[in-house]
């Protein structure tokens, strides 16, 4: 997988040609980011269950995936249609705003048995990139700890279906070998880590 700098660079080049679509005056980050709350919850703290928590995610990660939604590089049901409504600079401002918010973990109750299965797989196959049980956000990996399990499951099923084309490739290759039950266990495990 390309590293983040390369991905961001490629994206910036791609979107420059999409022209400036937006806005007469400068719009404040809160003005822009509050438009997301109808789906992602107040200040990005999703109230569940399939819409992901985005408040408190790492800034550069947010910026990168918002740009990827905009160019269509990242699959989505609706984020592509939404992200195209903002200039690149605005998406950056939104990313910073969301990153400044507190991460509020989902209050969902988890199944101890499933969590234990998930922990085992995590320790063997995921830990190197998703440190501290998915709490650490650095490099390119987003926070997994405390995310709504429905969303994590949704993402993992998508990744499973993509196989090696799920980025990063190393993760795709591992996720594609997991059963549906095991994917569920992963989602439960990360949800149990607040």
């Amino acid at each position: 997988m390309k590293n983040r700098k390369a991905r961001l660079l490629a994206l910036t080049a791609a979107v420059i040609f999409s022209g400036s679509l937006v806005a007469e005056g400068v719009r404040t980050p809160s003005m822009l980011a509050n438009t997301c709350a109808g789906c992602h919850g107040t200040l990005g703290a999703s109230a569940g269950d399939l819409m992901p928590i985005i408040g408190g995610m790492e800034k550069e990660f947010l910026q990168m995936i918002l740009l990827e939604y905009k160019t269509g590089e990242r699959d989505s049901t609706i984020m592509g249609r939404i992200a195209k409504g903002y200039s690149d600079a605005e998406l950056k401002a939104i990313a910073s705003f969301m990153a400044d918010q507190e991460w509020v973990s989902s209050p969902v109750k988890t199944d101890a048995k499933m969590v234990a299965i998930g922990q085992k797989i995590h320790d063997k196959q995921c830990k190197t990139c998703h440190e501290d049980n998915g709490r650490v956000q650095e490099d390119e990996a987003p926070r997994l700890a405390g995310q709504w399990p429905e969303y994590t499951m949704h993402y993992l099923e998508w990744c499973h279906s993509k196989g090696k084309r799920c980025a990063p490739r190393k993760m795709g290759k591992r996720v594609m070998k997991l059963s549906k039950e095991e994917l569920k266990a992963m989602a439960e495990f990360y949800a149990s880590e607040k």
Binding site: A37, C39, T42
Partner: peptide
Amino acid sequence: SWFKNVTAD
């Protein structure tokens, strides 16, 4: 899920 979030908002 939208409904949950918009009403929580």
